[in-house]
Simulated scan of single mutants.
Amino acid sequence: MGDDLASAFDKLRAAAEGLPEIAEATSYGTPCLQVRKKFLCRVKDADTIAIMCPLEEKQMLIEAAAQIYFETAHYHGWPVVLVRIDAISADELHHRLERAWLMQAPKSLVKARQAAG
């Protein structure tokens, strides 16, 4: 992994801290994070990450913060939003990863996390 990708992936790793059962893997040849083998996010390139996002939130995010969130034709209609890694705050990135985790984690794992407080 090149230094540029490593920097972006380090930000993802840090933002995912505290989320249960996060695993590192690769997706389309770049580093990604998963929960129980289900995709959460990946480094698309040195400047961009792709992160799972409910479709109903995706358009709102793009309209509210186009400097951070966007999509390309490839991702149109898919529950994935593209994020400019240097434009998003650490807190916002953690929130987005938590939302992706809730979307992708098995219901039993979500319930166990909610029960733990």
Rank of each mutant, 00 (worst) to 15 (best):
F70T: 06
T26P: 03
A116C: 02
L19P: 11
M52V: 07
F70M: 05
A90T: 07
I51Q: 00
V43D: 00
T48L: 01
I62F: 01
L82K: 00
L82M: 09
D10T: 14
R99A: 13
G18H: 10
T72R: 13
A25G: 14
Q104Y: 00
A14G: 05
L93C: 05
K111E: 14
R96K: 15
L33F: 04
V110P: 02
T30Q: 15
D4C: 04
T26G: 01
I22E: 10
V110Q: 11
Y28A: 13
K58L: 08
A87Y: 10
Y75P: 00
E21F: 03
R96A: 13
A15T: 03
E98H: 15
R42C: 10
F9D: 09
A87H: 12
H76P: 01
L82S: 02
D91I: 07
H76M: 15
L19I: 11
V80I: 14
Q114F: 04
K107M: 09
C32T: 03
K38P: 08
P79K: 01
A8S: 14
R84K: 13
A64C: 06
M1E: 09
F70H: 05
L12W: 05
H74Y: 09
L33W: 07
I88M: 11
I22W: 05
D91F: 03
D10R: 10
I88P: 00
G29K: 13
Y75S: 05
E56T: 11
A14E: 10
A105P: 00
L97M: 05
A105R: 01
A6H: 07
V110H: 02
D45Y: 02
I88N: 07
F70P: 07
C41Y: 00
E57K: 10
W78A: 12
L33Q: 10
E71C: 09
A46V: 07
W101D: 03
A25N: 13
D86F: 02
P106C: 07
V43L: 04
V83E: 07
E24L: 03
I85G: 11
G18N: 14
E57G: 08
L40Q: 04
Y75L: 12
A112R: 15
R36G: 06
R36E: 15
A15M: 02
V35M: 01
A23S: 11
M103Q: 15
S89P: 02
F70R: 02
R13Q: 14
A116H: 06
S7Q: 14
I85H: 08
H94Q: 06
E57C: 07
R13G: 08
A116V: 03
T48D: 02
R84W: 06
E98F: 13
Q59G: 09
A6V: 10
F39A: 03
H74F: 12
D3V: 04
Y75M: 12
V35C: 05
A87G: 06
S27W: 11
M52Y: 01
I68C: 04
V110I: 14
L33H: 10
A8L: 05
I22G: 13
D91A: 15
A50H: 10
I22D: 08
I51N: 01
V83D: 04
V43K: 02
L40T: 03
R13A: 07
D47V: 00
K38E: 10
M52P: 00
K11A: 12
Q59E: 14
R96F: 03
A87E: 15
M60A: 13
K107E: 13
R113S: 12
E63T: 12
R42N: 08
A115K: 10
A16L: 02
